[in-house]
Design a binder for these strands. Structure first.
Lengths: 207, 207, 207, 207
DNA sequence: GATGAATGAGTGTTCATTCAT
DNA sequence: TATGAATGAACACTCATTCAT
């Protein structure tokens, strides 16, 4: 399904998956603390409980780890998002609930979100598109949601307004984490969510 | 006025300023291309037409360059913004015009904005606050603008809605650059500006 | 026993010891020729048959090498000294023999002694005390020897004369190496030893 | 009289001498603190109140400064020594007084002595002999003194004992400074002088 | 499959020295 | 004579990656 293959010297697929999970977990924690460039492969190996040799049995390069990390975080976010949105009531209320759920996910996964947004740019030209694609997929979730509600007649957005609106939702959620140094000082998550719902739906003039 | 002093071995202040400008210019271009960490001081020296020794006559460390770069970009953005907003008509129309002007600046300075947002995090704990402060100052410009219009009675925002709205404006402008890979494929700047103005003012439901 | 630990990235203790011995040997030779500051880590690596990377697997810094060098030299001197003095006849004759043995060691280890005396001062404030302590221990060997003979009644030194006498012995031995440019031109080791024994025991007036 | 010429770009000899004195003074102080290698020419220039350009008008290289420093210190030591010894009473008492005076000079000029002994080795092969020669001249002062007293019949040293004795005197004086970390903790200068006079004249057995 | 010692190109930074003004 | 900006060779040290065991 469009995922980038990361080759491994090891054959056992189950083992690969298990080991990589541990590596990714250690890497996220280290990247969060020191960033991708300041984190050494030795540190990642040590933090995940492997020797440096073993680490390189499961990846080809340091960048592979970054890709795996980004990939894993996206999967995590998307998984939680789909769970939370799933089967929700439709209409405007459904949109509101989805946004609130998304904001909650962003809040819960702050460290991961931060890592992804600060380090993804270090991916090579080869790997970057895969990650960008995931980002688009996430935006598409909200596009579809909006589209559905437009179709239901509860919303009157023209076709080219929908992508912009979806991007706005996605970014406003991420902003909660990457502007935490400002926003989380003046708002709680609940306040922030309420405020942004209000402004997203009705604008600053709309009320 | 709260700027971080970057010491130089050279005494001539005019010369320092001139040389640093050239260095910053070269650095922005390189950082944009390869990122801060992948850019070497030698490359910066060469690209700005100096020897590595001369580079270090004007800065103490590689990080100083990053700080200078961020500092310079903020000054550039703010300068242009204040020029463009200055003396504008008041009321909602003034806000709209300011936002459009801001979006235009973001569009014109895409490379710089990108560098700032992707590399600022590499600043040391000592330098980061200075940059964050500048970011807040930029947000404050819009806060004040909104506050004025609220006072004029043309806008009905409560006090704690204003910061959120200002952050939204700032971020939506930056989003035009750091999501260029998606947005600039489907919108022109003018379309994007119109769309975002509409949604900022009236929301997706508001119309 | 009060030694400074020098950490290594390599785990195999035996290997560490073996490799470091080779490095120290190469370093002594280079330090003797060009001094600590004029010797580069690359030269040390090359002379000991390793890559620069490998060198740094076994030490943390250039200064570590200097410490290791000093440490190793002291151990060497002390070891030989204790072997040569061990089980010797007592009384004045024992002292004479010990001094002669010590002078012989100084003569045999001229390069090392020279390095130690000329470069130890380049040790950091952290490492210096460890080296000074070793020097004191060497002095203490002669203090004890003298003390024993005083107790035996063959020597009539007051308590505060003993340290001075011990320092004199130590220095006069080292002088043979660090004033080689003068002394070794006019004396053989044997002559020097005889002369100094005479003067140490009876003074210039005493005969 | 056997001095090494250090060329200068400046013609005025008086000026050269005056400027160099200031440079040497600053350099001694810096060398004492940080050693020759850790002291930069810029620091020396600054500390002596000149620009780096001016510094190089009066010397050709950093090493020239070291030579000038050593030279100046030797001159200082010798000058004071000759003043203090001059016209003294003859015989053994004259020797004793000379030694005590020499020890006093060493004590007064500790910093300079230390610099000379720790940094002289950094002189090039070209300059070193000049400094060694000075050291020999100092030894010769005591050789002559001893020779005179032997001739007077108050001392019975054979011809080849005299150089050794003179070297011993010189070194024991220097030892007071370069073993200060041990000796100056247990003796005052007066105690040390008395002790060493006793041992020099009568030895440890002689009394 | 696992280990960890070995590698060396590459990095930020320093500093003695020069030379145009 | 005096200045100080410019230079670049040289340095200590790092770290992703390999490969023999």
């Amino acid at each position: 399904m469009g995922k980038k293959e990361v080759p491994s010297l090891v054959k056992d697929e189950k083992l690969i998956q298990r080991r990589r999970e541990e590596m990714v977990k250690a890497a996220v924690s280290l990247f969060k603390e020191n960033g991708f460039h300041r984190t050494t492969t030795r540190e990642i190996a040590k933090a995940s409980g492997f020797s440096i040799g073993t680490l390189y049995e499961y990846i080809r390069s340091k960048e592979d780890i970054l890709y795996l990390v980004c990939d894993s975080i996206y999967d995590g976010v998307k998984l939680r998002l789909q769970q939370d949105i799933n089967g929700e009531d439709s209409g405007i209320q459904g949109v509101e609930r989805a946004i609130a759920a998304y904001f909650k996910v962003m809040d819960d996964m702050q460290d991961e979100v931060l890592v992804m947004y600060q380090e993804a740019k270090s991916l090579s030209h080869e790997a970057l598109p895969y990650v960008l694609k995931k980002e688009l997929e996430m935006t598409a979730i909200f596009e579809e949601l909006l589209f559905k509600v437009v179709k239901q007649g509860e919303l009157h957005l023209s076709e080219n307004e929908i992508p912009a609106a979806a991007h706005n939702i996605v970014i406003l959620g991420q902003m909660w984490t990457f502007r935490r140094w400002a926003l989380q000082k003046i708002y709680t998550l609940e306040e922030y969510t309420q405020l942004q719902l209000q402004q997203l739906l009705y604008g600053i003039k709309g009320a």
